[in-house]
Simulated scan of single mutants.
Amino acid sequence: MDPSKITVAQWIDQWIAAGAPGRKKVKVGQRTLERYEELLRVHVKPKLGTKLLQKLQATDIDKLYTELEAKLAPMTVNHVHSCFNSSLSTAERKGMIASNPMTRIEQLPSAGESDHGLALDEGELKTLVCGFKRSVTMYVPVAVDAATGVRRNELLAFRWTDFDADLKTLKVERALEITKKFGARYKPPKTWRGKRTIALDDGTVALLLAEREKHQRLMAGVPDGAVVDLSLIRLPDDALIFPGMPPAGQSFSFARPRDPSAFSKRFRRTADDLGFEGFEFHHLRGTHATLLLDKGVPVHTVAERIGDDPAVLLRNYAKRKRSQTADTSVSSVINAMSAGIYGS
Rank of each mutant, 00 (worst) to 15 (best):
T59V: 09
G131Q: 05
A206T: 06
Y36Q: 07
V42Y: 06
L64M: 12
T287R: 08
T7Y: 05
L167H: 11
A184E: 12
E34W: 02
I306Y: 01
V28K: 14
R285K: 03
L170S: 02
V297E: 05
P141I: 00
E69P: 06
S89V: 00
V172S: 01
Y317T: 01
K214G: 04
M75V: 13
P243N: 10
T161S: 13
V142F: 01
K126Y: 10
A239H: 15
D273K: 15
H43E: 09
V140N: 04
A20R: 11
D294W: 12
E122N: 15
I198P: 13
L108G: 05
T59W: 09
G117C: 05
Q54P: 00
P298L: 14
M96V: 02
A271W: 10
P257H: 07
L291R: 15
R285H: 01
L208Y: 06
E213A: 02
H283G: 04
R212Q: 14
Y139Q: 00
P46K: 07
T103R: 15
D202E: 10
G149H: 07
G249F: 13
F254L: 14
L230V: 09
P223N: 05
A318Q: 15
A91T: 15
G183V: 03
L235I: 08
R269P: 04
L88C: 11
K45I: 12
Y342C: 02
N316Y: 04
L120T: 05
S332L: 11
T287W: 08
T325Q: 09
S261H: 12
L200N: 03
Q54N: 09
N153P: 07
